[in-house]
């Protein structure tokens, strides 16, 4: 017989309008360091939220958006998020566009969940990612015109990735932040973590399960956060919500990449979306509004 050796520590708090839950496996002797890691991980969520919030007038992002036509050097965190978002915008030719913030507000995604305060539209629409000039050597950002940057598809994933670094030394852990999940190490049986995929068209039914270890899985779907006349994924190239897909699930070693690529693939549609995932080092599956499911070549290997 063996003795009871592992502890499973769980904790959950709300950040970014989402319940953020941690599960950490650790030995008895490591209780203190597990608690420290949990605190540090929540701290990263708090840091990312207060830096990147589009809803908080005092956030560093909002203050940056008030500066037009001059180079600004943001914190390392904000610069990394913006540089990543603009790079993906460039590679998708604007199917992913962090300058979509003004239209998100116009479409009704304008309420601070903590205060309930609405943020009236402050910048004119029509801005695009090309209006955000990123100087990678200098670490500066310059806005060519007034615009509202939205880091919704980037910031939560980055917080998940940073929290995952905080848990890196433990035998196994899972970070669940709404649609963004990172599973590290192994479960208590020494096997991969098995994550259920919600059926994008169903009522809480499962479309399947995937086994992952040291990887993130993120889903973009049109079944959450609807505004009056559309869901929260706008097609930056058109005037309304993207309509070809109903759900995209992406697996990658980084949650920031998985979340942003899922959003981009959702807008691009089945053919270009899957091609993007394969090109950019991720796997995934995509459900279309006409009932088809398409996957990357590597996706089936994860299915359980």
């Amino acid at each position: 017989m063996t003795t009871v050796t592992l502890q499973r520590a769980t904790a959950a708090r709300v950040f970014m309008d989402t319940l953020v839950a941690f599960e950490v496996l650790h030995e008895d002797a490591d209780t203190e360091s597990a608690d420290r890691a949990i605190n540090e991980a929540f701290g990263w969520f708090a840091e990312v939220e207060r830096t990147c919030s589009r809803f908080d007038p005092a956030s560093e992002l909002r203050r940056l958006c008030e500066r037009t036509d001059q180079p600004v050097r943001p914190s390392a965190l904000l610069f990394a998020a913006i540089a990543f978002a603009v790079e993906l915008a460039e590679r998708t030719n604007g199917a992913f566009d962090p300058a979509v913030g003004a239209r998100m507000e116009a479409a009704g995604f304008d309420t601070n969940y903590r205060t309930g305060e609405r943020q009236p539209q402050r910048t004119p629409g029509g801005a695009m990612w090309r209006d955000i000039e990123v100087d990678r050597e200098g670490g500066t950002v310059r806005l060519r015109r007034p615009l509202t940057i939205d880091l919704g598809a980037v910031a939560k994933g980055m917080a998940v990735d940073l929290a995952a670094r905080a848990f890196a030394g433990f035998p196994g852990f899972v970070i669940d932040a709404g649609g963004d999940i990172f599973a590290g190490g192994t479960n208590a049986d020494g096997g991969p973590w098995v994550i259920g995929l919600r059926d994008p068209s169903g009522e809480g039914t499962l479309a399947g399960r995937v086994a992952i270890s040291d990887a993130a899985i993120c889903t973009s779907g049109d079944y959450e956060r609807r505004a009056a006349d559309g869901h929260h994924i706008l097609d930056p190239r058109g005037s309304g919500s993207a309509t070809e897909c109903i759900g995209v699930t992406v697996i990658a070693e980084s949650a920031m990449a998985a979340d942003a690529l899922a959003t981009a693939a959702f807008v691009l549609g089945p053919e270009d979306g899957i091609a993007l995932l394969e090109e950019e080092g991720a796997d995934g599956c995509l459900a279309t509004s006409d009932g088809r499911t398409v996957t990357t070549r590597g996706f089936e290997a994860y299915l359980r």
Binding site: G43, E253, A257
Partner: peptide, 29 residues
């Protein structure tokens, strides 16, 4: 050079830089 590779490197850089406040708990972290 893929977006996944860029993302992984960016997160490592931000993590290494750390953050000012623990934003949480006893501040030991």
């Amino acid at each position: 050079s893929s977006m996944v590779g860029i993302s992984a490197a960016a997160v490592l850089g931000v993590y290494a830089a750390g953050y000012v406040s623990s934003g949480d708990g006893a501040g030991a972290t």
